[in-house]
Simulated assay, not measured.
Amino acid sequence: MRLAALAMALAGAPALAAENPLQPSPAWEDMRSSVTGSDIEPPIDPAVFDLEAPMRAENPALVPIRVTQVPGSPRITKLALVVDHNPAPVAGEFTFGPATAPLDFEVRVRVDAYSDVRAIATLEDGRQVMAGRFVKASGGCAAPAGGGDKAREGMGEMRFRSEPQGDRAMGTLMIRHPNFSGLQRDQVTLLNIPAEFVQTIELKQGDEVLMTMEGGISISENPVFRLGYRPNGQPVAVHAEDTDGRVFDASFPAAGG
């Protein structure tokens, strides 16, 4: 029930601001080549895709990010999501299958200080393009887990819901996991809780891959992912692993469940 409520909150969030463009970022200049594999700055191209994020986050540990692609533009095959001033800036590296085009993708991240949040997309034709917003938030990586001492209860529980949208569907994947960042403190011992988070995810319908993720500490606790896709009538399966070697598997009927 709690996971379902979290998904509803993400889907029903207020309209995300568009008046917060990227700001000059020495941190990005320092890391750009390691993220993109090139010294060339990926161009910002709103004719391909955009990233929406709140100008000022209500909760720095649960900042909603939405990436939407312009129909008819080259398919996005990979996406790196970066929060420039987080301790581990690369929140996640994603791949997307053909059934997700044009991309419509949402996720929640932690933002530790006022920072650019950017997505670097690799297109089917090999080009890289970028989009992003400047988000005012602080302390997201050290914010206590919402469940307190019960944060680990139900770890690995998953839900998947699919809602029709014309000839496509919007799938919502929810995973129960505290995604400890390594910067949070135990409220009793006051010692830092070791990092412990969902590291990899594979989402498939039948044999067709919809999404994979290699994630880090900047993905929020109890991760929620919303992804548009074309259903193929096959069951949906999720395989996930965390940094402590736990393996989580679940399958759902073709219509969601």
Rank of each mutant, 00 (worst) to 15 (best):
A13W: 14
N192M: 08
A18P: 01
V224D: 12
A113E: 08
A99Y: 06
R230A: 08
R32I: 10
R246G: 07
P144L: 00
M1K: 12
A53P: 05
M55L: 03
D84E: 05
E124F: 04
R159E: 14
D149L: 13
L81E: 10
K136L: 06
D207W: 00
P253L: 02
G228S: 15
N222Q: 11
P14M: 11
A80I: 11
A15W: 05
P144K: 04
E29N: 13
F49A: 12
E106A: 13
L16H: 09
G154I: 10
G154Q: 05
P194D: 01
R168W: 07
Q187D: 09
S115E: 06
M31K: 15
A5L: 13
P231F: 09
W28P: 01
H239I: 08
M55E: 14
P144D: 06
A80P: 00
I219M: 07
I65P: 05
L190P: 00
V198S: 02
A61W: 02
E241Q: 14
T36W: 15
R185G: 03
E29C: 00
C141Y: 14
R2I: 14
G245N: 08
S218G: 13
D112F: 02
P164W: 00
F197S: 00
P194K: 04
H239K: 12
A11P: 11
V67W: 03
V188C: 00
G97Y: 07
V198C: 10
K204A: 13
M158A: 07
T122V: 12
E196Q: 10
E208P: 02
S34D: 07
L81H: 05
T189A: 00
D104H: 14
Y229T: 10
P26V: 01
A195G: 06
E202V: 12
D45C: 09
V83K: 01
R108G: 08
V67T: 09
L203D: 04
D149M: 14
L3D: 04
A151N: 11
S181W: 09
P164M: 09
P21E: 05
A142S: 14
A9R: 15
G126C: 03
E58G: 15
R2E: 15
F96R: 10
M130H: 02
D125W: 07
T77V: 15
T68Y: 05
R110D: 10
V82D: 11
R108N: 13
I175Q: 02
Q184K: 09
S218M: 14
A137T: 10
K136R: 14
T68E: 15
D244P: 00
M130T: 08
M213N: 02
G215I: 09
D104R: 14
G97Q: 04
L191C: 02
A101W: 10
R108T: 13
M213F: 04
F225G: 11
L10A: 03
M1R: 09
G97L: 10
R108W: 06
A145Y: 02
